[in-house]
Write a protein that binds this DNA or RNA. Structure first.
Lengths: 201, 201
DNA sequence: GGACGAACTGGAACGTGTTCCTATTTTAGA
DNA sequence: TCTAAAATAGGAACACGTTCCAGTTCGTCC
Protein backbone atom coordinates (compact mmCIF):
# COMPACT_ATOMS: atom_id res chain seq x y z
CA UNK A 1 0.00 0.00 0.00
CA UNK A 2 0.94 3.63 -0.33
CA UNK A 3 3.32 5.04 2.22
CA UNK A 4 0.64 7.59 3.03
CA UNK A 5 -1.36 4.97 4.91
CA UNK A 6 -1.26 3.71 8.42
CA UNK A 7 0.55 0.46 9.02
CA UNK A 8 -2.08 -2.20 9.42
CA UNK A 9 -1.59 -5.13 11.75
CA UNK A 10 -1.01 -7.44 8.77
CA UNK A 11 1.84 -5.27 7.56
CA UNK A 12 3.78 -5.82 10.73
CA UNK A 13 6.27 -8.65 10.78
CA UNK A 14 7.54 -9.02 14.27
CA UNK A 15 5.70 -9.43 17.51
CA UNK A 16 7.55 -6.41 18.87
CA UNK A 17 6.07 -4.31 16.11
CA UNK A 18 2.56 -5.56 16.69
CA UNK A 19 3.08 -4.78 20.32
CA UNK A 20 4.28 -1.25 19.53
CA UNK A 21 1.26 -0.68 17.38
CA UNK A 22 -0.99 -1.90 20.15
CA UNK A 23 0.72 0.30 22.72
CA UNK A 24 0.30 3.31 20.47
CA UNK A 25 -3.40 2.70 19.95
CA UNK A 26 -3.89 1.98 23.64
CA UNK A 27 -2.23 5.27 24.53
CA UNK A 28 -4.37 7.05 21.96
CA UNK A 29 -7.59 5.66 23.37
CA UNK A 30 -6.48 6.38 26.91
CA UNK A 31 -5.60 10.01 26.20
CA UNK A 32 -8.71 10.55 24.09
CA UNK A 33 -10.90 9.02 26.74
CA UNK A 34 -9.41 11.33 29.30
CA UNK A 35 -9.26 14.64 27.46
CA UNK A 36 -10.79 14.28 24.02
CA UNK A 37 -9.38 15.30 20.67
CA UNK A 38 -7.11 18.04 21.96
CA UNK A 39 -5.54 15.80 24.59
CA UNK A 40 -4.38 13.35 21.96
CA UNK A 41 -1.07 15.09 21.40
CA UNK A 42 1.48 13.27 19.35
CA UNK A 43 4.27 13.80 21.87
CA UNK A 44 2.04 12.57 24.69
CA UNK A 45 0.97 9.51 22.72
CA UNK A 46 4.59 8.69 21.91
CA UNK A 47 5.64 9.07 25.50
CA UNK A 48 2.80 7.04 26.93
CA UNK A 49 3.33 4.32 24.34
CA UNK A 50 7.05 4.36 25.15
CA UNK A 51 7.95 5.04 21.56
CA UNK A 52 9.88 7.81 19.83
CA UNK A 53 7.96 10.51 18.03
CA UNK A 54 9.48 9.49 14.72
CA UNK A 55 8.35 5.93 15.28
CA UNK A 56 4.84 7.04 15.99
CA UNK A 57 4.81 8.84 12.65
CA UNK A 58 6.24 5.76 11.03
CA UNK A 59 3.22 3.77 12.16
CA UNK A 60 0.61 6.48 11.66
CA UNK A 61 1.42 9.31 9.26
CA UNK A 62 -0.76 11.87 11.01
CA UNK A 63 -2.85 12.47 14.08
CA UNK A 64 -5.98 11.91 12.01
CA UNK A 65 -4.71 8.60 10.68
CA UNK A 66 -3.93 7.62 14.23
CA UNK A 67 -7.37 8.47 15.56
CA UNK A 68 -9.22 6.92 12.65
CA UNK A 69 -7.20 3.75 13.10
CA UNK A 70 -8.11 3.78 16.77
CA UNK A 71 -11.74 4.20 15.78
CA UNK A 72 -11.41 1.28 13.45
CA UNK A 73 -10.05 -0.97 16.19
CA UNK A 74 -12.78 0.10 18.62
CA UNK A 75 -15.40 -0.44 15.98
CA UNK A 76 -14.15 -3.90 15.16
CA UNK A 77 -14.36 -4.79 18.82
CA UNK A 78 -17.89 -3.45 19.04
CA UNK A 79 -18.84 -5.44 16.00
CA UNK A 80 -17.45 -8.65 17.43
CA UNK A 81 -19.22 -8.05 20.72
CA UNK A 82 -22.42 -7.51 18.80
CA UNK A 83 -22.15 -10.78 16.92
CA UNK A 84 -22.56 -12.81 20.07
CA UNK A 85 -25.58 -11.07 21.43
CA UNK A 86 -28.94 -12.05 20.04
CA UNK A 87 -30.61 -9.21 18.21
CA UNK A 88 -33.85 -8.29 19.87
CA UNK A 89 -36.86 -7.03 17.97
CA UNK A 90 -39.36 -8.52 15.55
CA UNK A 91 -39.45 -5.98 12.77
CA UNK A 92 -36.44 -4.80 10.89
CA UNK A 93 -36.90 -1.28 12.16
CA UNK A 94 -37.02 -2.43 15.77
CA UNK A 95 -33.85 -4.44 15.42
CA UNK A 96 -31.94 -1.63 13.78
CA UNK A 97 -33.11 0.92 16.31
CA UNK A 98 -32.26 -1.37 19.18
CA UNK A 99 -28.73 -2.00 17.97
CA UNK A 100 -28.03 1.59 17.02
CA UNK A 101 -29.30 2.90 20.30
CA UNK A 102 -27.27 0.45 22.24
CA UNK A 103 -24.17 1.37 20.29
CA UNK A 104 -24.90 5.04 20.69
CA UNK A 105 -25.35 4.66 24.42
CA UNK A 106 -22.05 2.87 24.57
CA UNK A 107 -20.34 5.77 22.87
CA UNK A 108 -22.09 8.32 24.99
CA UNK A 109 -20.80 6.64 28.11
CA UNK A 110 -17.33 7.82 27.09
CA UNK A 111 -18.03 11.28 25.67
CA UNK A 112 -14.45 12.47 25.38
CA UNK A 113 -13.40 9.40 23.49
CA UNK A 114 -16.37 9.65 21.19
CA UNK A 115 -15.66 13.29 20.57
CA UNK A 116 -12.07 12.58 19.64
CA UNK A 117 -12.85 9.70 17.31
CA UNK A 118 -15.86 11.31 15.69
CA UNK A 119 -14.12 14.58 15.02
CA UNK A 120 -11.13 12.82 13.55
CA UNK A 121 -13.42 10.84 11.31
CA UNK A 122 -15.20 13.92 10.06
CA UNK A 123 -12.05 15.98 9.65
CA UNK A 124 -10.23 13.34 7.65
CA UNK A 125 -9.19 14.41 4.20
CA UNK A 126 -8.47 12.41 1.07
CA UNK A 127 -5.24 10.95 2.43
CA UNK A 128 -7.21 8.97 4.99
CA UNK A 129 -9.70 7.66 2.45
CA UNK A 130 -8.54 4.06 2.82
CA UNK A 131 -9.00 3.95 6.58
CA UNK A 132 -12.29 5.81 6.40
CA UNK A 133 -13.57 3.43 3.79
CA UNK A 134 -12.82 0.49 6.06
CA UNK A 135 -14.88 1.98 8.83
CA UNK A 136 -17.73 2.83 6.48
CA UNK A 137 -17.83 -0.71 5.16
CA UNK A 138 -17.84 -2.09 8.68
CA UNK A 139 -20.76 0.11 9.63
CA UNK A 140 -22.76 -0.72 6.55
CA UNK A 141 -22.21 -4.46 6.82
CA UNK A 142 -23.08 -4.35 10.49
CA UNK A 143 -26.36 -2.64 9.70
CA UNK A 144 -27.16 -5.05 6.93
CA UNK A 145 -26.59 -8.00 9.21
CA UNK A 146 -29.00 -6.50 11.71
CA UNK A 147 -31.56 -5.83 9.01
CA UNK A 148 -31.33 -9.32 7.54
CA UNK A 149 -30.13 -11.51 10.39
CA UNK A 150 -31.03 -14.83 8.83
CA UNK A 151 -31.09 -14.70 5.08
CA UNK A 152 -27.84 -13.09 4.00
CA UNK A 153 -28.66 -14.08 0.43
CA UNK A 154 -31.80 -12.02 0.17
CA UNK A 155 -29.97 -8.73 0.64
CA UNK A 156 -31.20 -6.44 -2.10
CA UNK A 157 -29.74 -3.33 -3.62
CA UNK A 158 -32.34 -1.37 -1.72
CA UNK A 159 -31.27 -2.90 1.57
CA UNK A 160 -27.74 -1.72 0.97
CA UNK A 161 -28.93 1.74 -0.01
CA UNK A 162 -31.05 1.96 3.12
CA UNK A 163 -28.20 0.81 5.30
CA UNK A 164 -25.98 3.51 3.86
CA UNK A 165 -28.56 6.19 4.45
CA UNK A 166 -29.02 5.03 8.02
CA UNK A 167 -25.27 5.10 8.47
CA UNK A 168 -25.20 8.67 7.22
CA UNK A 169 -27.92 9.75 9.60
CA UNK A 170 -26.25 8.01 12.48
CA UNK A 171 -22.99 9.81 11.79
CA UNK A 172 -24.71 13.16 11.50
CA UNK A 173 -26.58 12.54 14.72
CA UNK A 174 -23.35 11.64 16.44
CA UNK A 175 -21.66 14.78 15.17
CA UNK A 176 -24.62 16.80 16.39
CA UNK A 177 -24.29 15.26 19.80
CA UNK A 178 -20.52 15.62 19.96
CA UNK A 179 -20.72 19.30 19.08
CA UNK A 180 -23.37 19.91 21.70
CA UNK A 181 -26.12 20.71 19.26
CA UNK A 182 -28.22 17.72 20.26
CA UNK A 183 -28.85 16.11 23.60
CA UNK A 184 -28.48 12.39 24.03
CA UNK A 185 -32.24 12.04 23.89
CA UNK A 186 -32.51 14.03 20.69
CA UNK A 187 -29.77 11.95 19.15
CA UNK A 188 -31.68 8.77 19.84
CA UNK A 189 -34.85 10.38 18.57
CA UNK A 190 -33.20 11.51 15.37
CA UNK A 191 -32.00 8.00 14.59
CA UNK A 192 -35.30 6.45 15.49
CA UNK A 193 -37.24 8.79 13.22
CA UNK A 194 -34.95 8.16 10.29
CA UNK A 195 -35.04 4.40 10.69
CA UNK A 196 -38.81 4.37 10.95
CA UNK A 197 -39.10 6.46 7.83
CA UNK A 198 -36.75 4.23 5.92
CA UNK A 199 -37.97 0.87 7.15
CA UNK A 200 -41.74 1.11 7.16
CA UNK A 201 -42.85 -2.31 6.05
CA UNK B 1 -23.88 37.41 22.63
CA UNK B 2 -21.00 35.55 24.14
CA UNK B 3 -17.53 36.71 23.28
CA UNK B 4 -16.86 33.24 21.97
CA UNK B 5 -18.93 33.91 18.88
CA UNK B 6 -18.20 35.52 15.58
CA UNK B 7 -19.27 39.10 15.19
CA UNK B 8 -22.43 39.08 13.10
CA UNK B 9 -23.19 41.87 10.67
CA UNK B 10 -25.84 43.24 13.00
CA UNK B 11 -23.30 43.59 15.78
CA UNK B 12 -21.21 45.99 13.76
CA UNK B 13 -21.87 49.66 14.20
CA UNK B 14 -19.84 51.51 11.65
CA UNK B 15 -19.68 51.11 7.91
CA UNK B 16 -15.94 50.68 8.21
CA UNK B 17 -16.50 47.67 10.42
CA UNK B 18 -19.02 46.12 8.09
CA UNK B 19 -16.52 46.67 5.32
CA UNK B 20 -13.75 45.01 7.31
CA UNK B 21 -15.94 42.04 7.97
CA UNK B 22 -16.77 41.80 4.29
CA UNK B 23 -13.12 42.06 3.28
CA UNK B 24 -12.22 39.30 5.71
CA UNK B 25 -14.89 36.95 4.40
CA UNK B 26 -13.99 37.81 0.81
CA UNK B 27 -10.35 37.00 1.49
CA UNK B 28 -11.39 33.77 3.16
CA UNK B 29 -13.48 32.67 0.20
CA UNK B 30 -10.77 33.69 -2.22
CA UNK B 31 -8.05 31.76 -0.44
CA UNK B 32 -10.28 28.76 0.14
CA UNK B 33 -11.34 28.73 -3.47
CA UNK B 34 -7.73 28.77 -4.55
CA UNK B 35 -6.12 26.30 -2.15
CA UNK B 36 -8.76 24.76 0.08
CA UNK B 37 -8.78 24.43 3.84
CA UNK B 38 -5.02 24.49 4.30
CA UNK B 39 -4.61 27.64 2.23
CA UNK B 40 -6.92 29.57 4.52
CA UNK B 41 -4.15 30.64 6.86
CA UNK B 42 -5.00 33.29 9.37
CA UNK B 43 -1.96 35.41 8.53
CA UNK B 44 -2.79 35.21 4.83
CA UNK B 45 -6.43 36.09 5.41
CA UNK B 46 -5.43 39.07 7.55
CA UNK B 47 -2.95 40.28 4.97
CA UNK B 48 -5.31 39.87 2.02
CA UNK B 49 -8.12 41.56 3.92
CA UNK B 50 -5.72 44.35 4.87
CA UNK B 51 -6.36 43.85 8.55
CA UNK B 52 -4.13 43.05 11.49
CA UNK B 53 -4.06 39.51 12.79
CA UNK B 54 -5.47 40.63 16.12
CA UNK B 55 -8.35 42.32 14.38
CA UNK B 56 -9.13 39.19 12.43
CA UNK B 57 -9.36 37.29 15.71
CA UNK B 58 -11.51 40.07 17.07
CA UNK B 59 -14.06 39.44 14.35
CA UNK B 60 -13.77 35.67 14.23
CA UNK B 61 -12.39 33.89 17.28
CA UNK B 62 -10.96 30.95 15.33
CA UNK B 63 -10.28 29.66 11.86
CA UNK B 64 -13.27 27.37 12.16
CA UNK B 65 -15.56 30.25 13.17
CA UNK B 66 -14.24 32.16 10.20
CA UNK B 67 -14.88 29.39 7.71
CA UNK B 68 -18.28 28.50 9.09
CA UNK B 69 -19.26 32.16 8.90
CA UNK B 70 -18.08 32.22 5.31
CA UNK B 71 -20.16 29.14 4.66
CA UNK B 72 -23.13 30.84 6.20
CA UNK B 73 -22.77 33.85 3.92
CA UNK B 74 -22.38 31.69 0.84
CA UNK B 75 -25.35 29.62 1.87
CA UNK B 76 -27.53 32.65 2.38
CA UNK B 77 -26.62 33.82 -1.08
CA UNK B 78 -27.46 30.44 -2.55
CA UNK B 79 -30.74 30.46 -0.75
CA UNK B 80 -31.68 33.88 -2.08
CA UNK B 81 -30.73 32.87 -5.60
CA UNK B 82 -32.91 29.82 -5.21
CA UNK B 83 -35.94 31.80 -4.16
CA UNK B 84 -36.21 33.52 -7.50
CA UNK B 85 -35.97 30.45 -9.66
CA UNK B 86 -39.09 28.41 -10.16
CA UNK B 87 -38.74 24.94 -8.69
CA UNK B 88 -39.09 22.36 -11.39
CA UNK B 89 -40.63 18.97 -10.84
CA UNK B 90 -44.11 17.66 -10.16
CA UNK B 91 -43.60 15.34 -7.27
CA UNK B 92 -42.00 16.34 -4.01
CA UNK B 93 -39.15 13.92 -4.58
CA UNK B 94 -38.44 15.34 -8.02
CA UNK B 95 -38.32 18.88 -6.73
CA UNK B 96 -36.02 18.06 -3.84
CA UNK B 97 -33.69 16.03 -6.02
CA UNK B 98 -33.60 18.76 -8.62
CA UNK B 99 -32.71 21.46 -6.14
CA UNK B 100 -30.18 19.39 -4.23
CA UNK B 101 -28.46 18.27 -7.38
CA UNK B 102 -28.25 21.77 -8.69
CA UNK B 103 -26.81 22.99 -5.42
CA UNK B 104 -24.39 20.09 -5.29
CA UNK B 105 -23.23 20.77 -8.84
CA UNK B 106 -22.67 24.37 -7.88
CA UNK B 107 -20.46 23.34 -5.00
CA UNK B 108 -18.61 20.80 -7.08
CA UNK B 109 -17.71 23.50 -9.58
CA UNK B 110 -15.47 24.98 -6.89
CA UNK B 111 -14.03 21.89 -5.22
CA UNK B 112 -11.40 23.60 -3.11
CA UNK B 113 -13.88 26.04 -1.66
CA UNK B 114 -16.32 23.27 -0.94
CA UNK B 115 -13.61 21.22 0.71
CA UNK B 116 -12.63 24.10 2.96
CA UNK B 117 -16.16 24.98 4.02
CA UNK B 118 -17.35 21.42 4.44
CA UNK B 119 -14.37 20.35 6.51
CA UNK B 120 -14.69 23.39 8.74
CA UNK B 121 -18.36 22.60 9.23
CA UNK B 122 -17.67 19.02 10.20
CA UNK B 123 -14.70 19.83 12.40
CA UNK B 124 -16.49 22.50 14.37
CA UNK B 125 -16.73 21.85 18.07
CA UNK B 126 -19.19 23.06 20.67
CA UNK B 127 -17.89 26.63 20.62
CA UNK B 128 -19.20 27.03 17.08
CA UNK B 129 -22.61 25.60 17.90
CA UNK B 130 -24.41 28.89 17.31
CA UNK B 131 -23.05 29.39 13.82
CA UNK B 132 -23.54 25.75 12.93
CA UNK B 133 -27.10 25.87 14.11
CA UNK B 134 -27.78 28.82 11.82
CA UNK B 135 -26.56 26.91 8.81
CA UNK B 136 -28.51 23.82 9.78
CA UNK B 137 -31.71 25.84 10.12
CA UNK B 138 -31.12 27.45 6.77
CA UNK B 139 -30.67 24.08 5.10
CA UNK B 140 -33.73 22.56 6.73
CA UNK B 141 -35.98 25.49 5.94
CA UNK B 142 -34.74 25.53 2.37
CA UNK B 143 -35.61 21.88 1.98
CA UNK B 144 -39.02 22.32 3.51
CA UNK B 145 -39.79 25.17 1.15
CA UNK B 146 -38.87 22.95 -1.76
CA UNK B 147 -40.96 20.12 -0.42
CA UNK B 148 -44.03 22.28 0.21
CA UNK B 149 -43.67 25.19 -2.18
CA UNK B 150 -47.23 26.43 -1.92
CA UNK B 151 -48.84 25.52 1.34
CA UNK B 152 -46.46 26.56 4.07
CA UNK B 153 -49.19 25.87 6.57
CA UNK B 154 -49.50 22.22 5.84
CA UNK B 155 -45.95 21.46 6.95
CA UNK B 156 -46.18 18.48 9.27
CA UNK B 157 -43.86 17.15 11.91
CA UNK B 158 -43.00 14.38 9.53
CA UNK B 159 -42.05 16.84 6.82
CA UNK B 160 -39.59 18.48 9.15
CA UNK B 161 -38.18 15.13 10.20
CA UNK B 162 -37.75 14.11 6.59
CA UNK B 163 -36.08 17.37 5.72
CA UNK B 164 -33.60 16.87 8.53
CA UNK B 165 -32.80 13.36 7.43
CA UNK B 166 -32.27 14.55 3.87
CA UNK B 167 -30.02 17.29 5.16
CA UNK B 168 -27.97 14.72 7.06
CA UNK B 169 -27.59 12.53 4.02
CA UNK B 170 -26.65 15.48 1.88
CA UNK B 171 -23.94 16.49 4.30
CA UNK B 172 -22.58 12.97 4.51
CA UNK B 173 -22.59 12.70 0.74
CA UNK B 174 -20.74 15.97 0.49
CA UNK B 175 -18.17 14.83 3.02
CA UNK B 176 -17.72 11.62 1.08
CA UNK B 177 -17.13 13.57 -2.08
CA UNK B 178 -14.80 16.07 -0.46
CA UNK B 179 -12.64 13.31 0.97
CA UNK B 180 -12.45 11.52 -2.35
CA UNK B 181 -14.45 8.52 -1.26
CA UNK B 182 -17.27 9.18 -3.69
CA UNK B 183 -17.26 10.48 -7.24
CA UNK B 184 -19.55 13.32 -8.24
CA UNK B 185 -21.87 10.82 -9.87
CA UNK B 186 -22.02 8.64 -6.78
CA UNK B 187 -22.73 11.67 -4.66
CA UNK B 188 -25.72 12.57 -6.79
CA UNK B 189 -26.84 8.96 -6.75
CA UNK B 190 -26.58 8.74 -2.99
CA UNK B 191 -28.80 11.78 -2.53
CA UNK B 192 -31.29 10.60 -5.10
CA UNK B 193 -31.66 7.20 -3.50
CA UNK B 194 -32.21 8.67 -0.07
CA UNK B 195 -34.78 11.18 -1.26
CA UNK B 196 -36.69 8.53 -3.17
CA UNK B 197 -36.74 6.30 -0.13
CA UNK B 198 -37.94 9.08 2.10
CA UNK B 199 -40.44 10.68 -0.24
CA UNK B 200 -42.27 7.80 -1.87
CA UNK B 201 -45.81 9.04 -2.07
C1' DG C 1 -11.59 71.16 20.13
C1' DG C 2 -10.15 67.92 23.95
C1' DA C 3 -10.42 63.71 26.58
C1' DC C 4 -11.37 59.14 27.09
C1' DG C 5 -12.28 54.42 25.86
C1' DA C 6 -12.72 51.19 22.13
C1' DA C 7 -10.79 49.42 18.04
C1' DC C 8 -6.88 48.64 15.20
C1' DT C 9 -1.84 47.86 13.88
C1' DG C 10 2.41 45.42 13.90
C1' DG C 11 4.76 42.01 15.60
C1' DA C 12 6.67 38.90 19.22
C1' DA C 13 5.87 34.63 21.45
C1' DC C 14 3.89 30.10 22.55
C1' DG C 15 1.88 25.34 21.65
C1' DT C 16 1.29 21.48 18.94
C1' DG C 17 1.44 18.85 14.46
C1' DT C 18 4.90 17.58 11.36
C1' DT C 19 9.53 16.99 9.34
C1' DC C 20 14.26 15.91 9.52
C1' DC C 21 18.73 14.35 11.08
C1' DT C 22 22.17 11.49 13.53
C1' DA C 23 23.36 7.82 16.58
C1' DT C 24 21.96 3.41 18.20
C1' DT C 25 19.57 -0.98 18.17
C1' DT C 26 17.27 -4.75 15.95
C1' DT C 27 16.55 -7.86 12.17
C1' DA C 28 17.59 -10.66 8.17
C1' DG C 29 20.70 -12.86 5.23
C1' DA C 30 25.37 -14.82 3.95
C1' DT D 1 28.84 -15.28 13.69
C1' DC D 2 29.34 -11.23 11.04
C1' DT D 3 27.49 -7.63 8.18
C1' DA D 4 24.35 -4.63 5.77
C1' DA D 5 19.83 -2.82 5.91
C1' DA D 6 15.88 -1.49 8.33
C1' DA D 7 13.81 0.24 12.40
C1' DT D 8 13.99 3.02 16.48
C1' DA D 9 15.51 6.66 19.83
C1' DG D 10 16.20 11.27 20.91
C1' DG D 11 15.65 15.64 19.86
C1' DA D 12 16.14 19.97 17.01
C1' DA D 13 13.64 22.71 13.79
C1' DC D 14 9.77 24.47 11.17
C1' DA D 15 4.75 25.87 10.17
C1' DC D 16 0.60 27.65 11.43
C1' DG D 17 -3.23 28.59 14.84
C1' DT D 18 -3.60 31.33 18.68
C1' DT D 19 -2.49 34.70 22.36
C1' DC D 20 -0.65 38.83 23.99
C1' DC D 21 1.19 43.39 24.26
C1' DA D 22 2.69 48.32 23.29
C1' DG D 23 1.71 51.92 20.51
C1' DT D 24 -1.56 54.31 17.38
C1' DT D 25 -5.98 55.70 15.43
C1' DC D 26 -10.95 56.21 15.55
C1' DG D 27 -15.38 57.32 17.51
C1' DT D 28 -18.07 59.56 21.05
C1' DC D 29 -19.28 62.57 24.60
C1' DC D 30 -18.48 66.97 27.01
Amino acid sequence: MSSANSLAVEDLGSAAQRDRRKRILDATISLASQGGFDAVQMRAVAEQADVALGTLYRYFPSKIHLLVSALQREFERTEVALRDRPIEGDTTAERVISVLKRTTRGMQSDPKLTEALTRAFMFADASVAAEIHQVGMLLTSMLIRVMRPDDHDKVTEEDVAIAKVIGDVWLSALVGWVTGRNSAAETGQQIEVAVKLLLRD
